[in-house]
């Protein structure tokens, strides 16, 4: 993955209509966005549609990127993920995907072994998020991960977790608070 400064430079150039810079931005980041879209949409075809949509939007909206609001990759991933959530909310898959009961556990295992970490700063960040996930209760962690990686709503989470809606909402909110506070502590230490 390119350095943050390089991604920012490509984004600035993209905002000015530089197709070469946009191509470089795509080459440097599309595999990360595509990986996330595959996780959320669970269909290569839909993930590719979403990826296309996301980059067309990035091309058009590059001028709205504000470095002070976050890293370029954060912005790109957010655009892609919102697009994926939008697709999930508006249409159920025409062919139901097989259930994967241990998906969250698999995700957690994957997170330990995936991601060739190319930047020390990024390594620290990833370690922090994994360490903080361990700070959550099992239910809180599952809810947060299922919502992030599969785009489940409160109701869908309640069904998947076989728990009352109010309980699920509480798990999520407490889990998020704990995650926020843990990440803040990690940043300080």
């Amino acid at each position: 993955m390119a350095e943050r400064e390089q991604l920012e430079a490509w984004l600035v150039a993209t905002a000015q209509g530089d197709e070469q810079a946009f191509r470089k931005l795509y080459s440097a980041t599309s595999s990360q966005l595509y990986s996330l879209l595959l996780r959320i949409l669970r269909s290569p075809e839909r993930a590719q549609d979403a990826l296309q949509d996301a980059y067309v939007r990035i091309w058009q909206k590059a001028h709205t990127y504000a470095p002070e609001r976050g890293a370029p990759l954060t912005w790109l991933l957010s655009i892609a993920r919102y697009r994926a959530l939008d697709m999930l909310r508006r249409k159920q898959p025409e062919v139901a995907m097989p259930e994967e009961p241990d998906r969250v556990a698999t995700l957690l295992e994957d997170e330990q072994s995936l991601s060739p970490l190319e930047e020390n700063e990024n390594q620290q960040s990833l370690s922090a998020i994994n360490a903080c996930l361990g700070d959550l209760s099992d239910e809180q962690r599952q809810c947060v991960l299922l919502a992030y990686y599969e785009g489940l709503t409160h109701q869908e989470l309640a069904e998947r977790m076989d728990a009352p809606l109010g309980t699920v909402k509480s798990w999520i909110r407490r889990g998020l608070l704990r995650l926020r506070d843990c990440l803040a502590e990690e940043a300080i230490s």
Binding site: S31, Q32, Q48, L51, V56, G70, L114
Partner: peptide, 30 residues
């Protein structure tokens, strides 16, 4: 976003860029 950054990259098929590129010829950033 750290969750997304944490995933192993997966290269999308080349046709995705081709489709995006086709769109670029018809749209501008502004």
């Amino acid at each position: 976003a750290r969750f997304g950054e944490d995933l192993a990259p997966v290269e999308p098929p080349a046709r995705v860029w081709q489709a995006i590129s086709d769109d670029l010829s018809m749209t501008r950033p502004t």
